[in-house]
Design a protein around this nucleic acid. Structure first.
Length: 271
DNA sequence: CGCTGACCCTGACGGC
DNA sequence: TGCCGTCAGGGTCAGC
């Protein structure tokens, strides 16, 4: 679920109350996530001050001095803030109880998310090798050109590859490619220089627009106050196979790339 | 090295 | 009603 806008929306919702607060206790109801929640995590964060909540790609980093608790929401994860622990529902796996009052609850039906511990300043292996943030000025047409030259994989697959650029998942890849006029199955190395430059801008535009609307809720995702994101109501490509293009009326086609559905407009997307 | 597909897990939905 | 296949905002990993 959560792509960059959803993770960022979650982060912004948590910061006012959580940053600067102390951990009363961390309660792990079910440690069976993407990787097992480390057994010592609860002990190692107990009583410590959460200095900040940062985001790197789709990862949230709860900073404790030079250490960090890394949280990933997977496909169906959410973190919600409550004054007191609400009754537990199915798939509520972790509570971060604040000493000052308040609880951050982790809910994740598919359990593809993760809670991990990063000791010291050296980045966790998962964060090592990540590509630039989309809003980093270094992410531009020239960068894409350099990274994608000669690559034969579909442009959409590489746009979703966190080693190329972080934060772009299935929804925003489809939307950015629509805006940039590029078909998702086009071999990445064959996309023109001009379209790659446009693509970098379109990725930023789409992500910014979604953050402004609180992200996209398809099913599970909710922000830190349980609110749904409304960006999904205005997609141009994602989920619109067989429907008329919102720009030109042509019927959108669908292809499957790497087990993921990809809709596009054959008229608007010719690159 | 690059690319493709299987896999992790649960739930919702459509077809029969 | 129930069962079965297919599909979901994530990512890793094995195999060719």
């Amino acid at each position: 679920m959560p792509e960059l806008p959803e993770v960022e929306t979650t982060r912004r919702g948590l910061v006012p109350r959580v940053a600067g607060a102390h951990v009363g206790r961390l309660v792990v109801y079910d440690a069976r996530l993407r990787w097992p929640v480390p057994g010592h995590l609860a002990d190692v964060v107990a009583g410590r001050r959460i200095d900040a909540i940062d985001r790197r790609g789709k990862y949230l980093l709860f900073r404790f001095g030079g250490d960090a608790m890394i949280v990933h929401l997977g496909m169906t994860g959410s973190l919600t803030l409550h004054d007191a622990p609400p009754p537990r529902r199915p798939h509520d796996h972790v509570d971060l109880v604040l000493a000052e009052g308040g609880v951050v609850r982790y809910h994740d039906p598919r359990r593809f998310g993760a809670f991990l511990w990063q000791e010291g300043p050296r980045p966790h292996a998962l964060l090592d090798g990540l590509g630039p943030e989309p809003f980093d000025p270094a992410f531009d047409g020239a960068y894409l050109r350099a990274r994608l030259r000669g690559r034969k994989a579909p442009i959409k697959a590489l746009l979703m590859d966190a080693r190329i650029v972080v934060g772009v998942g299935n929804i925003y890849a489809a939307e950015a490619l629509f805006r940039a006029g590029i078909r998702p199955a086009t071999a990445a190395g064959r996309v023109s220089r001009a379209r790659l430059a446009r693509l970098a801008d379109c990725v930023r535009e789409v992500l910014s627009a979604s953050i402004a609307r609180g992200g996209t809720t398809l099913r599970d995702y909710v922000g830190s106050r349980g609110e749904r994101g409304s960006f999904g109501e205005q997609t141009f490509a994602y989920g619109r196979e067989g429907l008329p293009c919102r720009v030109c009326g042509t019927t959108l086609r669908g292809v499957r790339l790497g087990q993921r559905a990809s809709a596009y407009c054959p008229a608007c997307q010719r690159g």
